[in-house]
Design a protein around this nucleic acid. Structure first.
Length: 584
RNA sequence: GCGCUUGUAGCUCAGUGGAUAGAGCAACCGCCUUCUAAGCGGUCGGUCGAUGGUUCGAUCCCAUCCAAGCGCGCCA
């Protein structure tokens, strides 16, 4: 089933061609949801922009379009309003027909994409030997949501965890452990991740202060990258330790990833250099192998290089990123590669994309996109820290959200004199708490920073996960109370009359267009906004339209409306990686 | 110095080349004999950072400026 906007767009293009000639068959009708319900449901603004080339007053152009438009199966007679808007109002009969069709459609009327692509989504990417912290929250949550949306559309998605398992930090860590805790390098489970983090901090301190240590550490990286057996064993142990800890978080958050760290590309690093030589881009400067960039200058105004091999012989992240890019295009056959990282890395991506393009490694059919996001800030507007000024561990952050939800819930149970099992309380607290953290992040415009607040994300009112989950729960309440089997409602014809019913179904109809839009602009907050408005519209309907006590055909109509709302919420939330509950 | 991002209601944030710029929170006023009131309705609240320009039309596009944040040769 084509989405409503897709259908209307085609109708407009047919009308444009018949009114002004075949050359207008591809013209964008500039269609959108009406700015105000009093103007109808959809509006096309194309007449205003066509007035000049056609040398006709915009209202006449609009009138010509409206006259040529064949939409009587969907809409009331189109009207021309204002300076030249064509306004459309959907017919209740069409809406009822749509609702009937969608009732038996598990995809809720959202067709899979006609052009499936192989998409790599590179996200999360924590560093080995460090704990996952707030800094990984956004990449993990946003990347997962984007992957889910593209998967739902029918794209072949490869979710890659480009873990930092190969860089300078290993030189430091191995060098430090060799003197401080040698058994960690030879025995599995000799230390846990918490200890490793402490060691890492100390190693980093030594690295910054002690020149001799720095040199030894650098040599250790080169040794590791050249395949030294002892180094590799130590490295493997450290990675295993970290990996287990990461998995705990991923399990909590219900996130699936294929780990393919920086080390994976080690065998391909030399080819990057060879390739750059072939492309005649590689230049040696101050002992380092680099490619000079177009359009970037340093503080002195001189051209800036992208360094692919350091003067000490070690490769760095730019080399790894280039190797990964080649592998993803060449071996993974990616058509679209998305990098979900913080906005601070924008320059790096632009630079290495440029080098890859100039080297001729990116076919025209492949798109590379950096999907940037802003910082998670504390209430003070600065980067989120604990009270003692430490980085906030992701695990602690999630724990806190669950704990606060649990205590809110218990308090509410007490005031409402309800009794629930421990299991119910635990399940609810986890689903709501984790959902709230995810939703709070996803509902912000990705590109800007946001202020992290447990109070706001867990609030029961407003644009929050609990509000949406409650709307879902309300429908489950109806079906429980009425003992409704939604799969056996019979074939009562649906009749939409009440204002809140029509408003609700018109909103339900928009899900397909919203999903399509989000898959293009990669802004999950638009889906959040849609789901929030859906919940509001459902609550208004719920407030004014009794369901179970209504007479037929209202009763069946309202049951279908409720159920379709619930399924839309569940689907939408699932695309955001958020689970629903039957009761809360 | 160069580059990127952000600046919209008291607060947190949406939003769009088009018809009176939206929501939530906060404040205040209403609504439970009825499917969970974790809800609904209403009131209050704005020179869309500033100034120019493009356009029939700019909060949106362009330029300049102001403010905040971030990045800028061997970290990722």
């Amino acid at each position: 089933m084509a989405s409503i906007q897709e259908t209307l767009k085609q109708r407009f293009q047919t009308a444009l061609a018949s009114a002004f000639g075949a050359s207008y068959a591809e013209t964008d009708p500039i269609l959108g949801v009406s700015s105000n319900p009093k103007f109808g449901d959809y509006q096309a603004n194309v007449a205003l922009s066509l007035a000049k080339p056609l040398k006709q007053p915009p209202r006449e152009v609009a009138q010509a379009i409206a006259s040529a438009l064949v939409v009587d199966d969907l809409c009331e007679t189109p009207t021309v309003a204002g300076p030249g808007f064509v306004n459309l109002t959907l017919k209740p009969a069409y809406l009822a027909q749509w609702l009937t069709q969608v009732q038996s459609d598990p995809r809720l009327g959202i067709a899979p994409t006609a052009h499936p692509q192989r998409v790599v989504v590179d996200f999360s990417s924590p560093n080995i030997a460090k704990e996952m912290h707030v800094g990984h929250l956004r990449s993990t949550i946003i990347g997962d949501a984007i992957a889910r949306i593209l998967e739902f559309q029918g794209h072949d998605v490869l979710r890659l965890n480009h873990v930092g398992d190969w860089g300078t930090q290993f030189g430091m860590l191995i060098t430090y452990l060799r003197e401080a805790c040698p058994e960690a390098l030879t025995t599995s489970d000799a230390v846990d991740l918490g200890d490793l983090v402490v060691f890492y901090k100390k190693a980093k301190q030594r690295f910054d202060e002690d020149e001799a240590f720095k040199e030894t550490a650098r040599q250790a990286v080169v040794k590791l990258q050249s395949g030294d057996a002892e180094s590799l064993k130590a490295w493997g142990l450290l990675c295993d330790q970290s990996r287990r800890e990461f998995q705990v978080i991923y399990d909590w958050l219900d996130i699936e990833l294929t780990e393919r760290g920086e080390s994976f590309y080690n065998p391909y690093l030399a080819d990057v250099l060879t390739g750059l030589i072939e492309a005649q881009l590689l230049v040696e400067d101050a002992g380092a192998q680099c490619v000079f960039l177009e359009g970037y200058s340093n503080k002195a105004g001189d051209p800036m290089p992208l360094i692919v091999k350091k003067s000490d012989g070690a490769f760095n992240y730019a080399t790894t990123d280039l190797a990964a890019l080649r592998y993803r295009i060449g071996q993974d056959k990616a058509d679209r590669i998305l990098y979900v990282t913080d906005a601070g890395q924008a320059t790096h991506f632009a630079q290495f994309f440029q080098v890859a393009q100039r080297a001729g490694w990116v076919p025209d059919t492949v798109t590379l996109t950096h999907v940037p996001f802003g910082l998670v800030q504390g209430e003070d507007g600065k980067k989120l820290k604990t009270r003692s000024g430490e980085t906030v561990r992701l695990k602690d952050l999630l724990d806190e959200a669950i704990a606060r939800t649990r205590s809110d819930l218990q308090q509410r149970l007490q005031t409402e004199d309800r009794t629930e099992t421990e299991d119910f309380i635990e399940q609810t607290a986890r689903t709501v708490g984790l959902g709230a953290v995810k939703y709070a992040d996803l509902s912000q415009n990705r590109t800007s920073s946001y202020i992290f607040s447990y109070d706001k994300m867990l609030a029961l009112q407003g644009n929050t996960a609990p509000y949406l989950l409650y709307a879902y729960v309300r429908v489950q309440g109806i079906s429980r109370k009425g003992n409704i089997d939604f799969s056996a409602l019979g074939d009562t014809p649906l009749v939409l009359e009440e204002e809140t019913e029509l408003t609700l179904v018109k909103h339900l109809l928009q899900l397909a267009d919203v999903v399509e839009q989000v898959s293009q602009d990669l802004l999950p907050n638009r889906l959040c906004q849609y789901l929030f408005e859906l919940s509001q519209k459902f609550n208004q309907f719920y407030d004014r339209c009794p369901v179970l006590q209504a007479e037929e055909p209202q009763r069946t109509t309202r049951l279908v409306l409720s159920e379709t709302t619930a399924r839309s919420l569940k689907l939408g939330l699932s695309l955001l990686g958020i689970k629903t509950l039957e009761r809360m």
